[in-house]
Amino acid sequence: MIPAPFDYVRAESAEEAISLVGQHGDEAKFIAGGHSLLPMMKLRLAQPSVLIDIGRLSDLSYIREEGDQIAIGAMTRHMDVETSALLKEHVPLLAHAASHVGDPQVRHRGTLGGTIAHADPASDLPATTLALGATYIAQGPNGTREIAASDFYRTFFESALEPDEMLTEVRVPKMNGAGWNFQKFNRRAQDWAIVGVAAWRNGDQAGVGLVNMGSTPVLATSVAAAIASGASVADAAEQAAADADPQADLNASIEYRQHLARVLTRRALEAASS
């Protein structure tokens, strides 16, 4: 429960943070809310030698309308995502999914950018933004670039971010009145999902993101393709595990996870279609 020794520096701006990570290289980690990184450090699953604290970059905490998208600063806390009137109006699936993260204390500390950059396949919001077709903005020493959510996740805790890049913004398309639903299946209220499903549907368009169904958040493209080709929800949901490669753990066998993905996807799409 005691982390390995590390140095600590506080960045006062995004530019300074990127410069600091450039100096310290691979051994440095950004820390925002710290609610994923610190537990891993305490278990010594992560042993960064330098923590670059970006907790005071309040100019990265915002939720604003930009045309047909909502732009969310990386330092926006889950609680602000959950309660944002703008998100409730235009991206209600994301606001609702944020309410399922951890407990209120976690949601007041944890940040949207932090959970996405952490790239934990068992977290709720990476899969949700993936289902919504989000774009992530990364800032590096040479400027910014856009990364599609579908290109972002590589494997457990690994993303397309370069070591000297920082995630600064998440852009989510407005849902334009699409039906939506979020299913989180767990044994205790505060646990990670055994399987989670974030789904939206608008006519023959649909998006389904799966939580904890593999080494990355999973976009269930086969389900969306089935809906687009006119399949019933029940038939489309049968494809829910087709794009996933889940693992077994204490809570679930592989077969059970695949089954849960099908059941929860069907329920989510039924709710999103009604």
Partner: peptide
């Protein structure tokens, strides 16, 4: 009686 156990 975990969900997986009940399902089994």
């Amino acid at each position: 009686a975990s969900p997986n156990t009940v399902w089994n």
